[in-house]
Design a protein around this nucleic acid. Structure first.
Lengths: 354, 354
DNA sequence: TTGTATGCGTTATCAC
DNA sequence: GTGATAACGCATACAA
């Protein structure tokens, strides 16, 4: 500022006014200052601004990275996070805020990084169970925080999540009702993912409710494609295949799809298969994956908006928003391809937001 | 700090020393201060630190978002950017830096956002042609910048890019040589993508070099799946299909794959098809996509490292690194599935880095 | 309409 | 080892 002020022959206060678009500055002066700014390529230092204005115009996003890091990004379950990132970034776009990211495997190291991050931001988006609930609440006392896909009971915190229960229930009803499958297996996600636990519980309850069907086995994966493949190998080692295997997410379903394919099994001929999430690749597989459409974008959008609101008014009373998740029937469950509601993967604003 | 200092009965200077891990603090004092910090939940303000230390510990990443925004994220070509993001974030992880994002359609608005971003960061990663070369150079004078997949000739700037030329040449050689295809079409990417232009040029040169083959038509897309579908419809309107259609990226190839599938055409039976990039979904399609594997992760990793180096020593002489891109033959070109080098999508460190 | 002066929370340079 | 204190670059209350 000082350089600009000197060259333009005004005070730093005036330069600041011009930069901030204050109306109390003569048009001529403004133009002159603007010209100098342009010439000098001046860009205000965000640290200084932040210090002075007590706001950083940055919001943070912390997310989990699952699966074996060595195996590479493609196989870990980042698609979920990516969608959230883009949705959140899109709402921030208009506001002057930018998005600061941190990912990583759950653990102390990630918690440290989140802690450090918290000093750089005006608010924080937390995806899944990045840290212990108590630490989270501690954080939330100091900083606006909204949790995405966190645990359902979370109290005193803003949370947005998808209705895993209803989605899974509908899916299982289709499997046991329409198709009449009796012997089902489940490939579950990591225990530290609230979503995974909810889906497992919903699955078991739904199967139980169907009288004639039974849960033959529950396998445990970590949401990564590789862990799906491992589950498939375990399945292959059994005496007999179940009639249907339902997976806690699409990535793992893709893993079992490919692994079973390699073993020569046909889907849905030999086994029916379903996923959960409806990520982009899920409609690309052969056969296209029957799954449950999770409103990724809405999750991110809503969370970001809520955070902005809370930053504007920190006294807002915490609220948890439950977004609908519905089964989308494609072919991997045994339905003829293209027959039912095989609509394209969610495109964004299918449900009214606000 | 003041609170901490008061409660711990020391000066702010000492607190600062403890926080920064300075060795010139008595162990007892350190422990006492640490305890207070823990109790108070103190986290240093990054703005103040930034102002004082003249470094923000943040690096920025600006990228393009293509395709019709309305259609939603799944169909636009963000997979490229996502990979870069994760690779860059992974190298930053250990260093204390975090990643600040901005995406958007090319245009003045994005340039403004990048400008504002530049005040918040210590260095900038620029993916593709986010802004005019001159503006970029202006920016680079003030701030460490490295360009990812920028234009080849870029001088005086650090650039890392994939060897589109060699990759495309190899692919076309396979198509015209092994398969003997004569009549080829090309679905090109947006003109503002240096990668797209390079691939087009390489394609035309390679076909020309093959004597017997000819470029029947060049269609123009924008790297999004939707634009691939549009190209497919144009193809369908022709008198006859070409023998092979090669696309400038995988997303568009997937678009034509699905659209041709809807029209009842068989791939590769009726037309051969290829993509470029080897994004995750490309091996999931039926048939799996023959494509050119682009070293996304290496691109991001190398770029981030280079940026860090330049931040450490701004006098480094600019360099451009060309990473190999090689054809990966799967089934959409007409090869029998699983026969050739249908290896999994790149997992990260296949080529030596550094 | 414009300039002056002060504070924002840390780090770092000095003395002690 | 530790404590004052001066930057750091900008925004703003107040004075002019």
């Amino acid at each position: 500022v000082y350089d600009v002020a000197r060259v333009a022959g005004v005070s730093t206060a005036t330069v600041s006014r011009v930069v901030r678009g204050s109306p109390l500055v003569h048009a001529d002066t403004r133009d002159r200052v603007l010209a100098v700014i342009e010439a000098l390529g001046y860009v205000p230092d965000a640290s200084a601004q932040g210090l002075s204005m007590r706001r950083k115009d940055i919001i943070g996003l912390a997310g989990l990275e699952r699966g074996d890091g060595e195996i590479g990004i493609e196989r870990s379950s980042l698609l979920f996070a990516d969608q959230i990132v883009h949705a959140a970034e899109a709402v921030l776009r208009g506001t002057g805020y930018s998005l600061l990211l941190t990912f990583g495997p759950a653990g102390e190291q990630l918690e440290r990084r989140v802690r450090a991050l918290s000093g750089k931001v005006d608010g924080l988006l937390v995806a899944e169970e990045v840290m212990a609930p108590e630490d989270l609440r501690t954080l939330a006392r100091r900083l606006p925080v909204v949790v995405i896909a966190g645990r359902r009971g979370e109290t005193g915190l803003d949370v947005v999540l998808a209705d895993n229960l209803t989605g899974m229930t509908g899916l299982v009803a289709h499997l046991t009702g329409q198709h009449g499958y009796r012997r089902l297996c489940f490939v579950s996600g990591p225990k530290d993912a609230p979503d995974a636990m909810e889906r497992l519980a919903a699955f078991e309850a739904a199967v139980l409710a169907s009288k004639h069907s039974v849960v033959e086995q529950v396998l445990h994966g970590d949401f990564s494609e590789g862990s799906g493949a491992a589950a498939a190998r375990a399945l292959l080692g059994r005496r007999a295949m179940p009639e249907a295997v339902v997976c806690a997410n699409d990535q793992m379903a893709i893993g079992v799809l490919r692994e079973l394919g390699r073993a020569g099994l046909r889907i849905p001929g030999d086994v029916a298969l379903t996923g959960f999430d409806d990520v982009y690749p899920s409609r690309l597989t052969a056969p296209p994956l029957t799954t449950v459409s999770q409103p990724f974008r809405d999750l991110g959008t809503l969370a970001a908006r809520r955070l902005l609101d809370r930053i504007a008014d920190r006294s807002l009373t915490p609220r948890t928003e439950l977004l609908p998740a519905i089964a989308v029937i494609r072919a991997s469950c045994g339905c003829p391809p293209g027959l039912r509601n095989d609509r394209p993967t969610r495109t964004g604003e299918e449900w009214p937001i606000r």
